[in-house]
Design a protein around this nucleic acid. Sequence first.
RNA 1: GGAGAGGUGUCUGAGUGGUUGAAAGAGCCAGUCUCGAAAACUGGAAUAGUCGCAAGGCUAUCGAGGGUUCGAAUCCCUCCCUCUCCGCCA
Length: 421
Amino acid sequence: MLDLKFIRENIEVVKNGIALKRAEDNIDAILALDNQRRTLIGEGEGLKAKRNDVSAKVGQMKKAGENADAVIEEMNSVKMRIQQIDEELKGVEEKLEELMLTVPNVPHPSVPVGTTPDDNTSIFEWGEKPVSDVPLKPHWDITSALGIIDFDRGSKVSGAGFPFYVGKAATLQRALINFFLDQASEHGYKELQAPIVVNKDSARGTGQIPDKEDMMYVATRDELYLIPTAEVPVTNFHRKETFEEKDLPIKYAGYTPCFRREAGSYGKDVRGLNRLHQFDKVELVKFVHPSTSYDELESLRTDAERLLQLLGLPYRVLLMCTGDMGFTQTKKYDLEVWAAGQQKWLEVSSCSNFEAFQARRMNIKFKSKETGKQEFVHTLNGSGLALPRIVAAIIEHYQTPEGKVIVPKVLQPYTRFSVID
RNA sequence: GGAGAGGUGUCUGAGUGGUUGAAAGAGCCAGUCUCGAAAACUGGAAUAGUCGCAAGGCUAUCGAGGGUUCGAAUCCCUCCCUCUCCGCCA
């Protein structure tokens, strides 16, 4: 959510941002409601001041043994008017809040203008794509031959998109989780094991509600949401808190399963491990001083990239254009790993700066030494990394002509085997 | 799940429905004292909204939301959370 005052004072900037993100422009309606709101507040507060004043007098009169009935009678009409105004104000504020939630975050000036994924800029590419005389196989062929991922039984037990990892694939997955978490703590991220269901306030805090409500599984009986990413519980960890400036930046790494309904994406890229309803992910989250958030975004990206480099997997970095960026971000990089068997890029990380957008929704602040005031922190997050697609990339990249898979060197201490066969 | 107790400012902890934004103590910041520090003393210190060029004013906030009242931290209702006991259980 943007700051209403900021909107009021930067109408053109906000409108421009909305256009760049191709969102609905409700700014004029917002400004009108804001005016209405402030008028009502003005009138209401005047009356409340009067009420407080008179009530104090009534107290004194009663103490002095005087009769206050006339004054009380007079206050009855004031009281009713206050009630009217408060009610009207509540209605206006509800409408205003609703519209405020439709205003996307304003893209950073460094973000290229564009409308579709084709307008995203590939800014960096790393690694050698493997070349082979025989065509490389997609991972699903390899895993089914090896019997290490069981999609059919997953469908039986839960449904499409909920595979079992069997034997060495399960171990590989576990190894990756530990490897990612170890790397994260080595670079200053505190490990956090988070709840994987959250309440409504938390879902709203990070912006899944209302704009991405369809993506989540909901336990309606208890009004709990299965998290689509650890970003939700980890960022909400500090909801309604104020940091000391000297404690910033604060960095967390959280491993969780993630649940996504993926409604509407059937048929798109859904083979094998490419798109699942449940998957594992290590997420990196930062709470930072506003003045450093773009530097922190770069270092976050570096932290994610390093993992791919250590695994020896070719990847590229995309700077997302204004139109393909999410609602809540000001700047976002996607990391895509090369899936050698499928001959395509798979997104495995998305590193974003939200500036104060989430912090404002969640009321996460720090006390500024400079101004003595409380200011909103900036929040960032990025995957480090999403597991199934990494497993897919490893299997496809490190496959042998015999249909085995070599385990990347850095993972071998974790798996304690060097070949999947 | 059942029964009970409770949720007040950074913390501890007062608070009979009427100058209570809220006692007191601790802690924090500044000053006095000191060569310096401690102690002592003095003073300061919440957040948000709104009006104002500003100084500052006003409004709201004692778990959350409603209600009663001229007036609510204080009374009533609903919900949330914490603690104790019981039950169930990895």
